[in-house]
Amino acid sequence: MEVVLETKDLTKNYGEVIAVSKVSLRVEKSALFGLLGPNGSGKTTMIKMLTGQTSLTGGSATVLGIDVTRDPIGVRRQVGIIPEQETPPSFLTAIEYLKFVAAVRNIPDIETKADWWFDFLDFADKKNVLCKDLSRGTRQKLMFTQAFIHEPALALIDEPLINFDPIMQDVVKDYLSGYVRKGRTIFISTHILEVAEEICSGFAILHKGKLLHTGPVAELTGRNEHLPSFFLSLVRKDRNV
């Protein structure tokens, strides 16, 4: 199977603080891969390193065959990203922001595509509202749209369902599952374990920057084990160590 994301001994230190320590991962094409971990475990730092938003202290990472250290812009050109905090520019309206993204990414036919997304995520009534005046949920919809509007081969999403109401969570979960069925890959980081268990095909558990486990979700199901209890036992064990 084709590997779309690979890290070898990936490490990030902020001064004395070790945010991520020697993490080695492989994510195959068409996977919906979940990076799980408690708050402060290094999930966001991992996504930032994988998308060239922060430098690597050690190790290496390739995304869609591109070395993130050598060509971070190349990585960001190919993938879709939803950052942890939704931050569309304040003084553009929602539709203008999508046009801005389209212009930067050279996406053709943006009007049609944007209209489809406004309808799909049910925020067409907000298309002319300034981003700074949008609610958190609507901003998240806008950020979701910008990440998928160019139909990237790989999308990296930090907490995909945060700020969405239950109905929208359902819509988004269905969309993500359908997206990987089309041969594309999704890498999400979350600490909502039930969601990860429901939609992910593979997962990795991070704790205090260290990789505790990685493997397919089916492996747990085969053992009649649930992801939340497996996660908790592993993290608690590591905490005691």
Binding site: K48, T51, Q53, P72, I73, G74, R76, R77, G80, I81, I82, P83, Q85, T87, P88, P89, S90, F91, V101, V104, R105, M143, Q146, A147
Partner: peptide, 14 residues
């Protein structure tokens, strides 16, 4: 003064 690099972090912009 209007923006940090944050909003551009998800785009191919250096």
């Amino acid at each position: 003064m209007f923006d940090s690099f944050g909003p551009y972090g998800c785009l191919p912009v250096a």
